[in-house]
Design a protein around this nucleic acid. Sequence first.
DNA 1: AAACACAGTCCGACAATAGCGAACAAAGAA
DNA 2: TTCTTTGTTCGCTATTGTCGGACTGTGTTT
Lengths: 252, 252
Amino acid sequence: MSESRIIQSVARALNILELFERTSMELSVTEIANQLDLSKSTAFGLINTLARKGYLEQNPRDSRYSLGLKLLRLGGAVQRHSILVNRAKPYMEKLVQEFSETVHLTVERNGMVVYIEKIEGEKAIFMQSAIGAENPMYCTAVGKCLLAFMPESKSERLLKKMEPLQRRGPNTITDIAELQKELQTIRERGISIDDEEHVPGLMCIAAPLRNHDGEVVAAISISGAKAGISSKMVGHISERITTVAQQISATM
Amino acid sequence: MSESRIIQSVARALNILELFERTSMELSVTEIANQLDLSKSTAFGLINTLARKGYLEQNPRDSRYSLGLKLLRLGGAVQRHSILVNRAKPYMEKLVQEFSETVHLTVERNGMVVYIEKIEGEKAIFMQSAIGAENPMYCTAVGKCLLAFMPESKSERLLKKMEPLQRRGPNTITDIAELQKELQTIRERGISIDDEEHVPGLMCIAAPLRNHDGEVVAAISISGAKAGISSKMVGHISERITTVAQQISATM
DNA sequence: AAACACAGTCCGACAATAGCGAACAAAGAA
DNA sequence: TTCTTTGTTCGCTATTGTCGGACTGTGTTT
């Protein structure tokens, strides 16, 4: 919120990278310049700098640009440096082996759930979730879990911002009051369930991870096709994921 | 090689990100300023811009900075947009199931091998290779493979640059002439083998991937503990990885 | 073939602005 | 308390990023 100056050329360079992330294809200098309202020469200067440092690459055939491999390294570094990922990963793998379903590790950033680690199980087919991807909080198991256990002042603020709650699946909670009741239930049970609220046919069960101060800093989840999960299975998964979440929290 | 101007503030901002990649911990404004020879206020300006865009994050406890989650997204985008990764991945998974060993997908950048995809097998324990990581070419199966099949003018240039060849494992080839003979053998066999040349105890077998023009653009490899791979197994793996490499190449 | 259109790239001049030093606030350490 | 050191802000100045326009090469159309 502060008014500190931001360095424009840096911001513009980052905007270029983000433009590539959105459009997911090769872009030409002119296209980038037009998209971001820059003169061609300015765009070229920025692109050239990014390319020279390996953040963009130029296809020699048509001299268009695409994202460079340096970004792979940095992305990897984020994960590698994350104590959370390192601590949680072995436990996540155990869960994957146990249930053959996909397991996610997530945190909250700017009112969104960010997926910071994902291990796919055998049964995983149709989820195109990706590491680094962001999803809304109100309709995902992990999102509701993180909302439920954060300080109330913060959740109040986030809830206000996310109105109106758009319907995403057959059971999406679209009413704020109802969502608050749901969060209360989650606090009591210690488990958050997304039953086709985000994606039709998809079910997720999530549990909170706490740091050594007891604050909830992340959530893990198990996701699978609703058709493949019987109701007594839900109970079993809930128990196991709670136990594992506590084990991970104990190491933090 | 051209002398076009690069935008300093952007370059400096990227240097900051790379500094974090190297040091792998939280850094303070002052530390960054000292490391990169910037004034504290300049460093702060850059850091503040990066942080505001999500490329760095500030720990509220000690107000130090670390890499931000936006980089995860960008790293993921690189992989997602890579036709190579998408095409190769299902075949890589097949190989992992077949042999339970780790499978890598690599390309060459600036005379180094860059790992752009990795799938770990059951037996994988002791390799700390990471996606985006770089390794030397002369002592890895994938590196030698890429060297063997690139245009001679290019490989000549790269070979010159990598002298002297440092010993990394018991069988590292440290003589350029011998390495060139090895590359010739690889061209004849179509298979590249690293037998404890890079890491003691580790063995890798690699095969080239070609684009629709027949140029070698990448290499895939299977890596495992040498102790666990019998000599007839080497033959079997070589056959399979050659077949799979040709299948992948056919889709490009 | 020649003309054309449209790429990416380069250059010079101007003015915006990034960078610096110094001052400030806030948090620990002594 | 006082001292030290941190992150942050502020204003001036000269740096340097920005723009328009020129250049070059490729591919297409006539």
